[in-house]
Lab assay of single mutants.
Amino acid sequence: SAVVMEEGSPGEVPVLVEPPGLEDVEAALGMDRRTDAYSRSSSVSSQEEKSLHAEELVGRGIPIERVVSSEGGRPSVDLSFQPSQPLSKSSSSPELQTLQDILGDPGDKADVGRLSPEVKARSQSGTLDGESAAWSASGEDSRGQPEGPLPSSSPRSPSGLRPRGYTISDSAPSRRGKRVERDALKSRATASNAEKVPGINPSFVFLQLYHSPFFGDESNKPILLPNESQSFERSVQLLDQIPSYDTHKIAVLYVGEGQSNSELAILSNEHGSYRYTEFLTGLGRLIELKDCQPDKVYLGGLDVCGEDGQFTYCWHDDIMQAVFHIATLMPTKDVDKHRCDKKRHLGNDFVSIVYNDSGEDFKLGTIKGQFNFVHVIVTPLDYECNLVSLQCRKDMEGLVDTSVAKIVSDRNLPFVARQMALHANMASQVHHSRSNPTDIYPSKWIARLRHIKRLRQRICEEAAYSNPSLPLVHPPSHSKAPAQTPAEPTPGYEVGQRKRLISSVEDFTEFV
């Protein structure tokens, strides 16, 4: 048969007729292969192709491409040299491709048809291009793949890379869960390890502090508590009631339409708007009261037996805890006409967050109470924005700035309102402590230090009264110190430094 060459192609190359033996071998191979691939376009007849790359030819070592076609129900084999250009295909004639002069020997084609199974398996396991790669995943090629499931790999992101949580363990979102698992493993320790309690022994800490320079003076030496005195035992138990972190309780009120001037209507609300609910979820963490331990979680007086509701929101960081007394989460009882059960919590909070959804101005004093010092007013606006402002009593104007209003988005509203309420509550605590000038409020841990110092002074006084020969370590507060001759004046800087060093040991009130 003659071949018409394309323009620009090399000279004529004689194409030899395939021997009958080659056709029989390739026909047997075509019957084993699956003929249901995917359909081509209507211009080209339905056909199945599979590209198999052999590394070497037997005796020649030339890479070839073998295409199996099922045109007219008769499979045909096409061998081509890759750099050459194939002729145009037609549905009426068999596929013809040019070969190099080196394939002119018909014996070479017979060798190609009689490829060993080793070469076929190696060509099938190679990388296939384009559409033949999808075909190689079918059941027909499963014989050339190794048996057994593939090893499982770690989760992959859409980009093909490992997620960040699997790369950096410290930033993994499941870090707290692993800590819980470690605690569970520790709890399952053997009885021999049960006595080993991690941490620092208080006796060891005391020993280090006792021999430090801070205890060089007799006034700073630790003293032993009497065991037989019940009054001192009660004082030590009272110390446990003062937490070592700051605590805040903040009221949250929802004002519906037409309720801006009605205290009873505001306290009777059992739910609010959708934006109000989203605002609550951002204030803190939802907790169930019956599962809380009052000595570990500050509840601000809420009952854990269901008297004040089942849930509330709280927030904490390293040095403070805040609980929100939310009116809509507290039960509304029919027998309580004046809502006294709610007001006994909300009316005693220094700061209230008022979500004013009424469309009218909310005035300070609508919720009557002796300790309502500051109101954080949240007014929802259009386009997911809110107006946040402050209202306070006249005696609080020096501590709280009420002249600045803020426009905040719904997303950042819980954070801004919480921070403003916490700052206002700190100012309210300082303002409330002014009624007792001898006990200015600095912080909870300073209050613990003052309680310890008062307890020490009482013990020293009782020891001096029981044994008059012992001198008083600290003179009583009601006694007057003996007159001392004025010492020589020293520079102001040295006096300030000495006073600062003494105050650092005794108390921190002056620095606050």
Rank of each mutant, 00 (worst) to 15 (best):
L381H: 03
P222S: 11
T490P: 13
L422K: 00
Q321H: 14
L413Y: 00
A483T: 10
Q241M: 12
K337I: 10
L364I: 14
K290D: 11
E228D: 10
I367L: 12
G306L: 06
G359H: 07
F371Q: 14
I319R: 03
A327V: 05
D401I: 03
V376I: 13
N372I: 08
C392A: 14
S479E: 14
G365R: 05
Y493R: 15
K480F: 09
Y313F: 10
C292P: 12
L501Q: 12
Q230T: 11
E218M: 10
F350K: 04
H431R: 11
Q457E: 15
D395I: 05
S273G: 04
G301V: 04
L286G: 07
Q241N: 12
G309Y: 08
P471Y: 07
Q293M: 12
D410E: 04
S244W: 15
R344L: 08
G282S: 03
H271S: 08
P294V: 15
E263F: 02
D357T: 01
S504M: 09
P226I: 13
S262A: 06
S219T: 11
A483V: 08
Y254H: 00
L264N: 10
H451E: 15
T312V: 14
P222E: 12
L286A: 06
V335I: 11
L381E: 03
Q391T: 09
D336P: 08
L449Q: 13
G300T: 07
N386F: 02
Q370S: 15
K444Q: 08
L346V: 13
I407M: 11
L346K: 04
I266A: 03
V304T: 15
L264R: 09
N412E: 03
E462V: 08
K363V: 09
I266C: 04
Y245G: 05
F508E: 15
L364S: 15
C314G: 07
K337H: 13
N220Q: 14
Q419R: 01
Y355E: 00
G272S: 02
R456V: 13
T509V: 05
Q259G: 02
S479N: 14
K368Y: 06
V252D: 00
S504Q: 11
D439W: 07
S433E: 09
I446R: 13
G398T: 09
H338D: 15
E384I: 01
Q370M: 14
S229Y: 08
A421T: 01
E488K: 09
P222H: 07
D361H: 07
E288K: 11
C292Q: 11
N425P: 02
F232K: 05
S352Y: 05
R285V: 09
S260L: 04
D410V: 00
G300N: 15
P437Q: 06
G284V: 05
S268W: 03
Q457K: 14
D308I: 08
R454K: 14
T312N: 05
I242A: 05
V400I: 08
A417D: 00
R418H: 03
H375W: 15
S260V: 12
L449R: 10
R275T: 00
V236A: 08
E360S: 10
V297I: 13
L253E: 01
V236P: 06
L422M: 06
V388K: 00
L346P: 04
E397P: 10
M426T: 03
D318H: 09
F324K: 01
P486N: 09
L267I: 07
A427K: 03
M330Y: 05
V495S: 15
H451Q: 14
Q241P: 06
R285G: 12
L364T: 15
L501D: 15
F362S: 01
Q259L: 02
T490S: 11
G369K: 05
G301S: 12
D240S: 05
A251T: 08
S219G: 14
F279K: 00
G306C: 08
G365I: 03
R339G: 14
E257N: 05
W315S: 04
V335N: 13
N227H: 14
L302E: 14
Q259V: 02
D410M: 00
L280V: 06
H474D: 15
W315D: 06
L387Y: 05
Y313N: 03
C392R: 02
K499L: 10
P491Q: 13
N269R: 02
M330I: 06
Y441Q: 14
Q259R: 02
L455K: 05
A327W: 04
H271E: 10
G347T: 15
Q484E: 14
L286N: 08
F373R: 07
N372C: 08
I242N: 07
Q497H: 10
L413K: 01
R411T: 11
G284E: 04
P243Y: 06
V323F: 15
F362T: 02
N372Q: 15
Y355S: 00
S443V: 14
N356A: 00
E307P: 06
V473L: 13
M320L: 15
L280F: 06
T312P: 04
P437G: 06
P331Y: 04
E462C: 09
S479Q: 11
R500C: 13
E462I: 05
C385N: 06
I250K: 00
C314S: 07
T402V: 10
G359K: 08
V374A: 10
F371I: 05
Y274T: 08
T328S: 04
R418A: 13
E384K: 06
T379W: 03
L280A: 03
Q391Y: 04
H431E: 12
A421C: 02
G272I: 02
S260I: 08
R458H: 14
